[in-house]
Structure formats: structure tokens, C-alpha cells
């Protein structure tokens, strides 16, 4: 099978990995090299740079005083991370991964540096999950980079066959896809097969299918930051389900098309326009008004 055909959908990707006896991550690296724009070393180096920016964003969000432009959020990631020591209901690892995901989002909302994965609004989930699990399980940077390629392959299948934009498909297309990417990454890093990695991605999306994008005041803060926390937990749970032998009744490719169809059916009000859902609750509107006044007060508009 040709490398480019391998990335047509999940089934063809699994077929390729089986025929070549390789991981999804390796297939992704080969495809990137075959595009002819970068040598293998450069491809690996580029991903290493992404990992570094991700790790730094987690660190800043957990350790430094982060304040968002709107003053709506900040400091909550650190709070949850510290609380994780005290026997949390969701478990220490889940709690810390969720806190790390929030940390990146807080940095993002304060106009700090992050890596879109697949978008900026969902940029916390993949680093939150990978970096926390990496610390927990002593994964090396090389392993984490492999995980990023696995995640990239899953995201690419969604981008090609559905959408990764909140304006097109709602929050399911952003935090949903990010969780699916993270779940597949940790499954493959834990020795799961390509089929299992894609099953984990499928279950992750099934769990949040139809999730709307309804940002309060149009900002990437509420509910985005906490949905990144949920996305991290969703990824960990789905990875565990798959690794214990649970499968997805609906195959990955069918979940991708269902997600696209649902995304198309979501009304425009619930696709990033801040015209519905939480954005138009009385409190949501009041916050929007406050933010507007604050902005005009600061004389910038």
C-alpha cells in the first residue's frame, strides 16, 4: 500500500501499519518525510521543539502567576494541581493531567506561547495528558515525541475527513478531537495496537459527540479551560477502557463521519459565534458586557 493512501482513513492506516509492522507514529513520520519538504531529522527536531513549548506552557501555568487578558480566569490550574495531593475523587494522575491541561489554557488565554493541538482552544489536552503520564511512567522525550506523532495522525484523519474547527463543527471538533488524539497517543505508548489506539480515539469522541462551542464573551476561557480538563480525563479513561480489552462498537471511521454530520447540524449560534448556550445565559451576557466595558475603558478600542 502507498503511504499517501494509508492516510485516507483509519482502516487504511491500520492496514498499512499491519503490512509494514509499524506503529501509527512511525507511519506518520514516514508520511511527513515523503511530502518532501523536510528530512527525517528535521521532522523529529520540529516535533521536539513542539514538545519543549508544550512543557514550558505547562510549567508556566502551574508555577507562575498567570492572568488572562479579560481577568476572568487564572490560577485555577495551580489550585487543582496542588489539591491533587489530597486523595482526589478523580485520582491523582487524572487530577494532575487535568490541571496541566488547564495550565496550558490559562497561558494561552493570557496571550502566552502554546502549540495548537489541534487548535489553540484545545491546546491543553495533549500536553496535559502526555506530560503528566510521561512523568508518572518515566517516558523519555523520544517516547513522548512518538506519542505526538500518533496524536498528529489521529488529528489529521479528523482534519481530512471531518473538521477540527469550532466554527465548523463545534467544541467536539476541538476539545473532542484533542482528547481523541491524546487517548490514541497514550494507548500506543503503552503498547496498544493501531486498532486499539483508534478505538480509544473513537470512544473519546463518542463520549462528547455534539458538544457545542459557546464561549462566554467570545473568549477562549469559559467553558474552554474546564473542557480541556474534562478532555484530559476523557482521554485517560478511554485509554484505560481500550487497554483492558474493551472495543468500540462503532468503528473509528464511522465515528468520524458521524461527528462531521453532527457538526454540520449544529446551529450557527453554537459554533464559536458566542450567540447561544452559556454565552447567552444572563451571567454570560453580563460577563460579556463587563469585558466590553473594560476593553473600551482601557482605551484600546
Amino acid at each position: 500500500m502507498q503511504l499517501m493512501e494509508a492516510f485516507e482513513n483509519g482502516a487504511s492506516l491500520c492496514q498499512y501499519c499491519m503490512a509494514e509492522n509499524c506503529t501509527i507514529a512511525e507511519a506518520m513520520i514516514r508520511r511527513e518525510v515523503s511530502r518532501g519538504e523536510m528530512m527525517r531529522d528535521t521532522v523529529m527536531e520540529e516535533m521536539r521543539k513542539n514538545l519543549e513549548v508544550m512543557r514550558e506552557a505547562v510549567r508556566i501555568g502551574l508555577e507562575e502567576h498567570v492572568e488572562t487578558v479579560s481577568h476572568l480566569s487564572g490560577g485555577e490550574a495551580r489550585r487543582l494541581f496542588l489539591y491533587a495531593k489530597y486523595d482526589p475523587f478523580s485520582g491523582g494522575n487524572t487530577c494532575r493531567a487535568a490541571a496541566s491541561a488547564m495550565a496550558v489554557c490559562e497561558v494561552n488565554s493570557s496571550m502566552g506561547r502554546i502549540v495548537a493541538a489541534p487548535t489553540a482552544g484545545a491546546s491543553g489536552i495533549l500536553p496535559g495528558v502526555l506530560i503528566e503520564c510521561g512523568m508518572e511512567r518515566n517516558w523519555t522525550d523520544d517516547q513522548l515525541i512518538q506519542g505526538l506523532f500518533t496524536a498528529g495522525a489521529v488529528g489529521l484523519l479528523f482534519a481530512q475527513n471531518a473538521t477540527i474547527s469550532g466554527a465548523d463543527g463545534g467544541c467536539q471538533a476541538e476539545t473532542g478531537v484533542a482528547s481523541a488524539m491524546a487517548a490514541a497517543a497514550i494507548v500506543e505508548l503503552s503498547g496498544g495496537t493501531p486498532e486499539q489506539a483508534l478505538d480509544a480515539a473513537a470512544i473519546t469522541i463518542k463520549n462528547i459527540m455534539g458538544l457545542v462551542c459557546d464561549p462566554v464573551a467570545g473568549l477562549v476561557e469559559c467553558p474552554c479551560i474546564k473542557r480541556n480538563a474534562l478532555g484530559a480525563a476523557n482521554a485517560l479513561l478511554c485509554a484505560d477502557m481500550v487497554l483492558c480489552g474493551i472495543t468500540s462498537l462503532i468503528p473509528f471511521d464511522e465515528v468520524v463521519s458521524a461527528m462531521l454530520q453532527v457538526g454540520r447540524d449544529i446551529r450557527k449560534e453554537y459554533r464559536e459565534t458566542a450567540k447561544g448556550g452559556l454565552a447567552t445565559t444572563p451571567t454570560g451576557k453580563a460577563v460579556a458586557e463587563k469585558v466590553r466595558r473594560f476593553q473600551s475603558y482601557s482605551g484600546e478600542y
Partner: peptide, 21 residues
């Protein structure tokens, strides 16, 4: 079909808060 790079998915490295905005 658009020819995505893996770095269109994991990336870009950017200033927040929104890749499209």
C-alpha cells in the same frame, strides 16, 4: 483532499488564544 502536514495538526507554535482568531 487537502494535503495536511502533521505540523498543521500539532502546531503551529503560536501566541494564544485562538489558532483561527
Amino acid at each position: 483532499m487537502e494535503d495536511f502536514s502533521v505540523f498543521d495538526i500539532i502546531g503551529p507554535r503560536m501566541t494564544g488564544p485562538s489558532s483561527s482568531h
